[in-house]
Amino acid sequence: MSSVKRKYVVPGDVVAEGDFRPVAHVTQHGNKFISTRVGMAEVGQEGVRVIPLSGPYIPRVDDLVIGQIVDYSAFAWDVDINSPFFGVLPAQSVFGREYSPADESLSSKFAIGDHLTCKIMSFDRTRDPLVTVSGPGLGKVEKGEIVKISPTKVPRLIGKKGLMIKSIETATNTRLAIGQNGIVVTLGPSAGVEMVRRAIRLIEEEAHLADLGSKVQALFTASESATN
């Protein structure tokens, strides 16, 4: 992977010419591959792709997301998952197969405004994404503070094998739940949450640069020496 060449691109820039496979955020015109986003272009073994630096969250099956209930009908909740599409949480997936709107009311379980940790069950371009709350770690978010990050920068917040989250958690004495949609729930002392906020802002601004880990560490040590 280290042999991958990177360059900065904007929409319309030619990323590569020749016989490649388009992977993400490129369109093909003849043998030219054109970027569709502002971001970093990579030409590697697996093909041509652009890592975007801005943009909305587009759901993908099996993504963990954090959403907010905005509405409910007799059969399903509508969940705002910070995306152009609303998540649909069917009542049957919460109450079980035998659910009947006559016996149980959806508002008894989740109310409008509640935050949920959920997983994308299925999504394709013809229908809104189905989400589920059954599974370990899924369900209502009982406490914590919501911090937002641009969805395109979530991979950098998580880091290689979750290294970045771990280092932030230990340094700030907090627990983080990160949704792929850019919603982060932070749990811990308020000073720690404030530090997380600052770390996320730093990652947001410098997501395209190397050495983020040490920069975040420097932020923590600087604030530590300031309080002492």
Binding site: S2, K5, R6, Y8, V10, V38, P155, H208, L209, A210
Partner: peptide, 19 residues
Amino acid sequence: REALMNKYFGQSEPMQEST
């Protein structure tokens, strides 16, 4: 192009390792 590049990347060089 320059305006977009300036906003997103400033004067920085693209990093070459994978993230």
